[in-house]
Amino acid sequence: MSLENTPFLEVIKSSFSAAIWKEVGPAVWDTVYMTVVSSLIMLVIGLAFGIVLIWTDKGGIRATPVINGPFGWFINILRSLPQMIMIIIMIPVARSIFGQSYGTNPCIVAIAASCIPMYARMVESSLMEVEKGKIDAARSLGSTDFDIVFRVWIPEAIPSLVRGFTVTVIGIISMTALAGMFGAGGIGDIAVRYGYQRFQHDKLLACIYVLIVIVQLTQSAGNLLSDHIRKKRGLM
């Protein structure tokens, strides 16, 4: 059903019909799958990168410009690539890992590669927010560098790390829609194939509902978790 020849209300009504959702429903799971797996990869590697950045920073554990400089540069280069270009660049990488360059898993590689540098910078700034006095206190109690990072620095930053993670997961959701154009399946795929190429605007609307709901749920979950931790700590 297209908006070109059907009244708006009719299209909306149709967008809730069982026929539409039979096709959109399974795509939701593809999107959720891609989002969850990419987010987990991003969380682990992004945290690790963020820790490297802060460890080697001037105000960090040990100022190591020879590492911090090039590494920051590398991250900035990754960040400056538009997501679409990142997907194209990752095609040969994904082929070498999965033996194919098309489909859900190969796109996860591209999504993670694109979002890791963003999350790494967020981790860096979350950690920077932790008051230096706490690090001094930890040092004055005889902490090793490892103690400082893993027992004090990261735990203190958790509410802020959670908020940053939420923002980047939402970025990932929007990138899964883009990846749909490159054979990743999911909501983006439906929206492009039917909504754009065949003017089936009822399906396009259904995809929009799904994206809105997923993004809202993600944001609310992130806010709830962060607030819960802050309340528990007596900070709000």
């Binding site: 008051e131 006095g133 706490k134 001094d136 206190a137 930890a138 040092r139 004055s140 109690l141 005889g142 902490s143 090793t144 004090v152 735990p155 203190e156 958790i158 700590r233 900070l235």
Partner: peptide, 19 residues
């Protein structure tokens, strides 16, 4: 690290671990 055991420090802003 070992010596700091023998030298405690207390701060104006407390610098407690909020976590």
């Amino acid at each position: 690290l070992e010596e700091r055991r023998h030298i405690g420090m207390v701060f104006q802003n407390f610098n407690l671990f909020e976590a």
